[in-house]
Design a protein around this nucleic acid. Sequence first.
DNA 1: ATTATTTTTGAATGATCACTCAAATGTGAG
DNA 2: CTCACATTTGAGTGATCATTCAAAAATAAT
Lengths: 198, 198
Amino acid sequence: MARKEKYDSDQTLNRATSLFWMQGYHATSMKDLETALDLGPGSIYARYGSKAGVFEAALKNYAAGRRTELERYLAAHDMVLDGLAAYAGSFSNLCERDAPSVACMMMKSVTELHATEPTLQTVASELLDATEAMFAEQFQRAKSAGELAHDADPAFLGAWLQAEIMGIRTYAQKAVSAERVAQLADMLAMRVRDLKKT
Amino acid sequence: MARKEKYDSDQTLNRATSLFWMQGYHATSMKDLETALDLGPGSIYARYGSKAGVFEAALKNYAAGRRTELERYLAAHDMVLDGLAAYAGSFSNLCERDAPSVACMMMKSVTELHATEPTLQTVASELLDATEAMFAEQFQRAKSAGELAHDADPAFLGAWLQAEIMGIRTYAQKAVSAERVAQLADMLAMRVRDLKKT
DNA sequence: ATTATTTTTGAATGATCACTCAAATGTGAG
DNA sequence: CTCACATTTGAGTGATCATTCAAAAATAAT
């Protein structure tokens, strides 16, 4: 009854995500997107409405990926704190990964777009808050399970963990030894594990 | 013998720094600069050669400001660790400041420009490394003065402190309670103070 | 085949991009 | 006053920006 899409939406969205993640919003042109998605401008506008629309979809796609990544770590460990520590420790190979950027896309967006694209910045900000809430939720779960000290503050720990990860990923963006980054990530993982009530 | 500059270089450079710090490199146009500096394009090109040239000068100007800021904190305290802790703690009012951005300009540049402007990214990266080296140097001084444990690693502590500050400043870029940011900064200051050998 | 519907194509739009340069303007020495 | 020279002015450059839209192509039901 109708013409098929040239590429399925997942593939298209992943390509757009990679490009925006790597280059940021302002440095990525519609021409860049057209070649990366192998689609004419008309097709892109038909699907997403605008460049900002593509970016918003890409950002949400990125955030969803991060969420499932965390869930994978949590599912692989019996104790919540071990899962969170493993997640934190996973950033020790950050420099060896072949991702579009070592820095988090939400983080890059929230800093790049603050003054110039308030609408998109808010989207990024809310996605980051959702991630922080997820951390906090897990710390709460750990507390309920008796893994944490009774005076631990899960909401604060969620904020703390997010800030720590932001620090490591931004630091890694410098031309710097991969070992130093690994050292920082390992130390963070240790700190998370050390939250355990003995 | 020659016509005077319309504004002295310091003022011009500070205005350019504010603009680039706030908006980033790609989102700032030459038109933006012309109106902010109240200069025609010809004057700007005569002074800095290119948009990238203005940015590089602005970035170095920003870094110099940060350096003197740290030196002020160090000069105000007898013990090195107290100076560093005070500097770290100064970020607790980050959200109340009326700076062009809560995030550090070097940090923003290093993430924004990685894929698109390698030359400028390298400049930002080197300025960040210089800042880290300054931290490390101070930790070394603290160690020599017997403030630190004998097995402390000043170079690592320098990297750690920079990553922690990056984390807090990026976290603060979210729409988030100022108190939480203050809490994170206070905790960092405490951690620095706790490095003291008792 | 014909038709209805969806998607793609790609030329064209006006705005804005970084940048150039010849002419005008100001300034102090002689 | 005149001249040498640093600096500013601002119109103009071609390239690229995000976006639009009419026409072509592909699909599936009739």
